[in-house]
Design a binder for these strands. Sequence first.
RNA 1: GCUGCUGUAGCUCAGUGGUAGAGCGCGUCCUUGGUAAGGACGAGGUCAUGGGUUCGACCCCCAUCAGCAGCCCCA
Length: 663
Amino acid sequence: MSVTIKLPDASKRDYEKPVSCAEIAEDISPSLARAAIAASVDGKMVDLAAEISDGTHELRLLTSRDAEALEVLRHSAAHVLAQAVVRRFGRDVQYTIGPALMDDYQYGFYYDFDLPRPLGHEDLETIEAQMRKIVAEKIPIERIGLPVAQAKARFAELGQDYKIEMIDDLVRDEAVEAVSLYRQGDFLDMCRGPHLPDTGRLGKAFKLLTTAGAYWRGDENNKMLTRVYGIAFFDGKDLKEHLDRVEEAKKRDHRVLGKQLGLFMLSDEVGPGLPLWLPKGSILRMELEGWLRDELLKRGYQSVITPHIGKIHLWKTSGHYPYYEHGLFPTMKTGDDDESGYLLKPMNCPFHIQIYKSSQRSYRELPVRLSEFGTVYRFEQSGELSGLTRVRGFTQDDAHIFCTPQQLEAEIESCVALTKLCLETLEMNDYRVRIGLRDPDDAKYVGSGENWDRAEQNIRNVVRKVGLDYTEEVGEAAFYGPKIDFVVKDCIGRDWQLGTIQVDYNLPERFSLEYIGADNSPHRPVMIHRAPLGSPERFIGILIEHFAGAFPLWLAPVQVAVLTVSDKFNDYAEKIRDDLRAAGIRTDLDNSPEKIGAKIRKATMAKVPYMAVIGAREQEASTAAVRARREGDLGAMAVGQFVDALKREIETKGKHTLLNKGG
RNA sequence: GCUGCUGUAGCUCAGUGGUAGAGCGCGUCCUUGGUAAGGACGAGGUCAUGGGUUCGACCCCCAUCAGCAGCCCCA
């Protein structure tokens, strides 16, 4: 028997007998042996202690420089956490699962426990202290392969019912006969690994962050466990950087900035999830919606306006009612039967469908594109509400396109282009595209399989044609059809769906929609439900975070702050303000008895794009000393010149600015 | 909805079983100052709401409401 090891530098090593990865590392260099965390053999991650026997194998020794090694570190951190919790609670704790998190913005690992009592802040400190002790003890982490029956017996001795359940599932789903366990001193867990060679290698750069509830197996019908979240790195510097970055990101939280900048408010008196737009926030909406309205007109959309409530049967016909009753505000009853009530609308489509049906449609009219900024109401679970991104009353930049099957893909394509235009105009380039498909096993999806297959194929054809990078996700479709979603992350890494394009063969059937074709006989149109922003509420919430409240000039609630050096120049400053306002520039005057430095600071913190400083020199020369939010003093300009430059920057949405002149 | 944490002035927060404080903001006055904080004085709070324990509750207990984190959900 002989073993040949191929290393990443293409060198080879031969051994006469089975050899562990750790031994090979030692042979190469003692420093590598010390730095090694785990290994990759033929592309598979293993422990350093893993033995390689017979044959030729490719080996990579993983150190803290390898991305995979961080995952091992965090996974072991989860085990150390579990060991600490077991030491604290003994047989009263059941430990379940504890993975590493590599893509999460805040957290690096967690472990879910079934505990006799809730954990508080002090508990986290105690547990973290115990973890540091376990690290100091440098307990070896050993892998043990055991037949299923023996493994179950061991966990039965330890009173770990969840582990037994997990083993049973592995036997059922994967027909395993043996499982791998990891032991570190007094702690035993079932795990695929790999892990650090000993607990000492976890080091000091870890921290427990928070506790939260989490359902066992993610099912709300199961018991809620206690999840402990933490973060771990190889280097204390990385840990600090991470914590600082999360802290910094929280400063751009739209809920914080919305309050600071006076954009919107939520009131206990009004109700949860029902935002009130303050004057400055209303500007954002008016500018954004106004711009989009113009773009829609250019693209042949027609504007419609529909009411906020309608008869309940509309949503019974559409299919919303039976599946989403829990998400609706309670029905307004007008009689004793179930049919005669009104519903606060959860979506606009039944109304737009009625408008489509209001006259006989010829194929010559199609596509009919009916658009509306329609406000809808959904009774979201209280635990879901969050600032502007998840609310109970929100507007959709909605439209429904009714077209022939032949026109469908071109229409989808133009919706994709419009959505991209929205994101690009606002410099939001950090998004992903998700295609939501139905889950054939889920009963909530209406309509025939053929309709779904057709619609899914239409969508794939378009995204391939326009070359979008996308992922397909089963179970993410709307109940009536598949969709293309544009998904962005908020300041703490949570995903939010913004723009959406949904293909629907089903509602036209349910509402018996028709058009008269060239053959003089009725045909069924296809519908597209689409919202390029998704919802102005959510979109602006994300937008606030994207710009950290420092909006481009065309959106800025206050575009220019006129600041007087002393009140001797109030009259001239008022004239400048009035001139700017007359030119359509949103301008505020600060003639308070403060020094100019304080006024500049105040306007800067309010994130006003431009300031016009007015003193004796400016008054004499009929100029304004212009200052930009970020760049500082730009020197004096004639007022007319300033206005022209501002207008140009506004009209070009920032492509030509006072600074770059546009090129 | 579930689990946990939190709720004190407009905002951010400190605080104590014996009826409350800071900074910012706000108001008045002084200062008339040239590119990120001039000074003085002052007004502002049923300590989320409702019960309970106590001689006495902002503080302890319970409930409700709301916020935050996570889970589940999301047309």
